[in-house]
Simulated assay, not measured.
Amino acid sequence: MNGQETDRTTVTTDHPTDAADTTSTDESGSHHVRTAGVVIGYDGSPESRLALSWAAATARRRGSRLTLLHSVNLSFIPGFPAFDTSQVEPELQDAAKRLVDDGAQRAGDSLDASRIQTQYWLGSPAAQIVEASNDADLVVMGSRGRGRLTGGLLGSTSYAVAAHAHCPVVVVRPAHELTQPADTEATEVASVNDGLPEVVRPDAGHPVVVGFDDSEPAMRAVQAAADIAMEEGAELRIAHVVQVPSIDSWAYEETAHAGTVHAHSLREHADDALSAAVRLAKAKHPDLQVSTEVLYGDPGRAIADLGSTAGLVVVGSRGRGGFKGLLLGSVSHNIIHNAECPVMIVR
């Protein structure tokens, strides 16, 4: 192959299952049956196993399939003219199969094996997961580190998937840096948690937080957040952030608009937006417990801070699915990078 990438798919576990398929409607109004359920990009890292734990629990609660995906990126292999990568492909495929089989065994801790399937490729990880998202209800990705000062940027694969997937994406990020545990003995049964910390989920004590800004993506985010809150028995907390301008411009606005007129106008707009969001959430779930909050400052930072007590933060993204879409917005990226709980991106 002279170093060229190939995209090959191998299904290593695909047992008959009674897990229900779901139907979605795209922007053109056409219907699409989603058969993969919850899809997770899995690479065996501690962060990936943490995400696997969250994904398996979600699949169990939803009664859906769990599909583990792994891709070996051949671009990391030197492409010398005389080097034929087909010589190493069997070894790479064997290693990939062992990795996803290990992940499936871990997921079997909390999910029936008949609902678990695995796939692996030689090719671009992000492109393959985005393609798989066409048939998924939800994609789950792990990502390394967090923090405004010490955390790294969102990993390239997780970023690309969050920005371009065709379904909602949840990024599960550890509150603290994780370390790789020592290898377990071959006789030991792998555990989905394997000594890793538990990941918070929405429940009666951990609300689903959603940021709302009047946009269509935000409306879809509210609907998705309401569905999850109702499903998990959690409160839905809708927040609208008023972006405060610089001190000088704020002072000018206040003077130009007779003191607090401008501030009152911003608050009235925020209250109207939140009232519309509550109506939207309760249209489908009239019994859902909903609270609202108006915050001031940077939207990404303000919403991310709410993640300290939340089970899930949901944010809308203006990008379209597929790699022709827009990049992930700065607010969404800020929230993913800094929130202390899993973050869902909805477009």
Rank of each mutant, 00 (worst) to 15 (best):
R98K: 11
V38I: 14
G329E: 04
T12G: 13
P299A: 13
V189W: 10
E47F: 00
V290P: 03
S191G: 12
H257M: 14
E177Q: 14
P78G: 08
E254W: 05
P299T: 13
S156R: 05
V278H: 05
E47D: 10
F323P: 02
T150S: 09
L288V: 09
G205C: 03
R49I: 07
P174F: 12
N193E: 15
V130P: 04
D21Q: 13
G322V: 03
L50D: 03
Q128P: 02
A186W: 15
G311W: 02
T23N: 09
R201T: 13
G329K: 07
L138P: 00
H269E: 14
L326A: 09
Y120P: 04
H264C: 01
V242Q: 12
R201A: 10
Y120C: 06
A96V: 07
A107E: 07
F83K: 07
D43C: 05
L92Q: 01
Q87A: 09
D26R: 15
R144S: 04
P245W: 13
R173G: 05
I40T: 00
P245S: 10
G108S: 15
A132Y: 06
A302N: 10
V313K: 01
Y252R: 06
H32Y: 15
D101S: 11
V241L: 04
V242H: 06
I77A: 05
T10C: 09
N193L: 14
L111A: 05
P342W: 04
R301S: 11
V39T: 09
A277E: 02
P16R: 14
N334W: 03
H257P: 00
L69K: 07
A165M: 10
A339I: 05
A304H: 07
E27A: 10
G259S: 08
S75L: 13
E254S: 07
H15C: 02
V169Q: 04
D272M: 12
L111R: 10
R267L: 11
R61W: 09
S110W: 11
E177T: 14
A57C: 10
A218D: 03
I40Q: 00
A302M: 15
I247Y: 13
Q223C: 08
G103A: 04
A132T: 08
A132N: 08
A276H: 08
A36I: 08
D271F: 08
N134D: 10
R34C: 03
D227C: 05
V38C: 02
A55P: 06
D14E: 15
A186Y: 12
R237S: 11
H31E: 14
A302T: 06
L280P: 05
F83W: 13
A96R: 04
A19N: 12
E293P: 04
D272A: 14
R115M: 13
F323H: 03
V313G: 00
S332N: 09
T157H: 00
V290H: 01
V313S: 01
Q119V: 15
L69N: 02
A310S: 06
Q105H: 09
A162P: 00
L312Q: 00
I238C: 05
H164T: 04
V189L: 14
R173C: 03
Y42E: 00
M141E: 00
L295Q: 13
A127H: 13
C167W: 13
V100N: 03
V315Y: 03
D227S: 11
E185F: 12
L312C: 01
L326V: 01
T67F: 09
V38Q: 05
A221M: 02
H164A: 10
W250T: 04
Y42S: 03
A57E: 15
